[in-house]
Design a protein around this nucleic acid. Structure first.
Lengths: 184, 184
DNA sequence: GTCTATATTAAGATAGAC
DNA sequence: GTCTATCTTAATATAGAC
């Protein structure tokens, strides 16, 4: 089986256990592969596994989030699509964001640059949409940050309360919140 | 040295490395205590260390956040005080929130109930203030959630971007954002 | 209350057969 | 491409001296 086969399983594992908590034994059990086989697919060990997952996530991010923001239609529609994709990618709030998880523990030293880059790309893409709608650069960028803050915060809160409602509500309200007070 | 001596150091360690990443070796080095001495103070090991830290945090939470929300003065002033204490407790955004960290990895199974309880208490206290100011219960509770979302999300984003500005901005804007559209 | 020493278990990683 | 077996290092935990 090729590498990509195990990416969804690895993503799930790192989201659930974090980088330090996802041990090779757990990975071996979840994938059904022996430890030696894991090193055949990922010679660099856990670090390479996460890199593969991050590459996969970046591709999904570009094909879903970024594409939605740059799609046809008016501003509100594009923000709406972005929120829909965000909702799906986190399975309605069931799944935490791997980016946030990789900012903690020993993973941060390794993956922080890539996570930082993804966050910037996301925020900039949202700001771009809002500037097209007539918002000035500073405010558009702030609202891009506000979107990231709302999504990340809502994921944490829904996870902490064991209640998907806050995440659902935030995603539902977010397009209008980003679009508020824009005339044309 | 009594137990409490080591709480600040332990808090710092768990915030930086997470529960799974904070090994006894690191704890031993940071506290200056041998592993055996650590078990003298905390017979339950890492789990008991976190419990001690959480007890300490709960006390600080009640004396700072809750007390600010229930203090004298008008609504906006009380929200302002709550934000000031929140800002200080996270050292201006330098320090992540231990509650969020304890929701990940193997810590979640152990500490989720306590974290959930603290989050609920915080949200309810904010909602209480807003209801006193005339907001209806549903909306007040939503804004309590929004406050938690904004703080948690901003901490993640500032951590992810390596830039304290988003956290500072969110804290600055939060009182007015929670208080918006309230007449009396 | 702290230490050295040590036990036990698990984690990360590799060699080499099939 | 997967396995068994094994190695090394590190993590959690304890015994017992001072």
């Amino acid at each position: 089986m090729p590498q990509e086969t195990y990416i969804p399983c690895l993503l799930q594992l790192f989201r659930q256990h974090g980088y330090d908590g996802a041990t090779l034994s757990k990975i071996s059990e979840a994938t059904g592969l022996g430890k030696a086989s894991l090193y055949h697919h990922f010679p660099g060990g856990k670090e390479e596994m996460v890199r593969a997952v991050l590459d996969h996530l970046r591709a999904g991010f570009e094909q879903n989030i970024l594409q939605a923001l740059r799609s046809e239609g008016d501003t509100l529609t594009r923000l709406q699509r972005m929120c829909d994709r965000t909702f799906e990618l986190h399975e309605g709030g069931e799944q935490p964001c791997l980016f946030a998880i990789l900012l903690m523990g020993s993973a941060r030293e390794i993956f922080h640059p890539q996570v930082q880059n993804l966050l910037r790309t996301w925020i900039d893409a949202i700001a771009e949409v809002l500037m097209t709608a007539g918002l000035d650069e500073t405010l558009a960028h702030q609202r891009g940050e506000d979107a990231a803050i709302a999504v990340q915060g809502a994921l944490i809160l829904s996870h902490g309360l064991n209640d998907l409602a806050p995440f659902r509500r935030v995603i539902k309200q977010l397009p209008q919140q980003l679009y508020r007070d824009i005339s044309r």
